[in-house]
């Protein structure tokens, strides 16, 4: 099995657009995942009885195979990017929800009491004290969810989307390994680059971690 380098040269435009489409699907999913899991995590953190229920529910959703989620969404959203993004979002929830709840749990009770004693209102405490302090744990979840989504986008190739995943079906149908190898390598590269970018983002977002050092 050898790589046909001229095929890569002839298809750089396609590869670039597939890579961007791939990244866009994964990032949209993580964005919506955060949008859903942040309020749910605050609820799970403050209302103890709901905590087990919400975390359990996200665990069960995670058990459903990705291809099954995409397929089960077909009657609702059809062969579209929406199906891909909804499916991936469901997958990010388990990691994002768990990490956000754990992050909020990790904020010392004394810090919250100090905020209260200074007359800070609960919403303000959440936004300016709890969430920033929980950020490292939340970001760890975002990193895992991003890498996982990037890997999962390719499964959507079976419902006609899938970014770089299209290279896998293409290579399989033509019995031609080059696109498959290129697809695997680009997916791994994309995951590494996105992960590094998120580490950089976290560095920028938590300046207080640097001052101490």
């Amino acid at each position: 099995m050898s790589v046909d380098w001229s095929w890569i040269g002839d298809h750089t435009d396609d590869l670039t657009s597939l890579t961007f489409s791939h990244l866009q699907a994964a990032m949209t999913a993580v964005f919506f995942g955060l949008l859903i899991s942040l309020p749910l995590a605050v609820v799970a953190h403050r209302v103890r009885p709901l905590r087990g229920f919400l975390l359990g529910l996200s665990n069960v959703l995670f058990t459903i195979p990705s291809i099954a989620i995409f397929v089960l969404l077909l009657p609702i959203s059809g062969l579209t990017r929406t199906t891909t993004v909804i499916g991936l979002t469901v997958y990010t929830l388990v990691v994002l929800l768990r990490n956000t709840v754990e992050g909020l749990d990790s904020v010392p009770a004394k810090t919250k009491e100090a905020a209260k004693a200074m007359g800070t209102r609960p919403l303000r405490t959440l936004l300016t004290v709890e969430l920033p302090l929980a950020l490292p744990v939340i970001m760890a979840g975002v990193r895992i969810a991003t890498v996982m989504s990037i890997s999962l986008v390719s499964v959507a190739t079976y419902i006609g989307d899938g970014g770089l995943g299209q290279l896998f079906t293409d290579g399989f149908q033509r019995d031609f390994p080059t696109p498959v190898i290129v697809g695997v390598v680009l997916t791994l590269l994309l995951a590494v680059v996105a992960d590094a970018a998120l580490v950089g983002l976290q560095y920028v977002l938590t300046p207080w971690k640097r001052r101490r050092a």
């Binding site: 099995m1 890498v147 996982m148 890997s151 499964v155 995943g165 399989f172 697809g183 997916t187 995951a191």
Partner: peptide
């Protein structure tokens, strides 16, 4: 761990199949 998470399943199956 992160390598395992990033590895695209579909690509892996097809690649080993072609090989």
């Amino acid at each position: 761990a992160s390598f395992g998470r990033a590895l695209p399943t579909v690509g892996l199956v097809v690649l080993v199949f072609l090989a």
